[in-house]
Amino acid sequence: MNTYIRRFFYGDIPGQETGGSPSPQGPKNDWPLWEVFIRSKQGLDHKHVGSLHAADAQMAIENARDVYTRRQEGVSIWVVKSQDIHASRPEEAGEFYDPAADKIYRHPTFYDLPDEVNHM
C-alpha cells in the first residue's frame, strides 16, 4: 500500500522510515515489560496507566510508585508482566457484546417514570 507522507509536523521529523532494528545487545539485558494498574486514594478500582521495564516485581512496583504516583499518596499498585495479560480479540467484540444490545430493558432509560420519582 503506497502512502505519501510529505507533510512534516512536530515530532515527525524528516528522516528514514524507522520500524525498529534488532539491537546489538542480546536477551542478556532483557528486563520484561510490566503493565501498571493504579487505584487512587478515592478510587474504587485499579486503572491501567501504562507500562514500564523492570527486572523483577519488586522493582516494577517501586518504579510504578516513582513514575505514576509522584503527585499523590496512599495508592494501591498492581503490576503484571505484559506477557501474562490475556485480552479479548477486537473481532470477538461482536459475539461478546452485541447480544446485550437486544436487552435494552437492562438500561434505566427504558423506563418512563413520573417526574416525582424520576431521579431514581
Partner: peptide, 26 residues
C-alpha cells in the same frame, strides 16, 4: 510505553536513536 503497544521494544527504538535512524526534537 505507548510505542511498545505497536509491536516494537523500547530497546529497538533506543537503538534507532543511537544509530541516528530516529531523531528527536531539534
Amino acid at each position: 510505553s505507548a510505542c511498545e503497544t505497536l509491536g516494537i521494544t523500547r530497546e529497538e527504538t533506543i537503538n534507532d536513536l543511537h544509530t541516528g535512524r530516529a531523531k528527536y526534537s531539534s
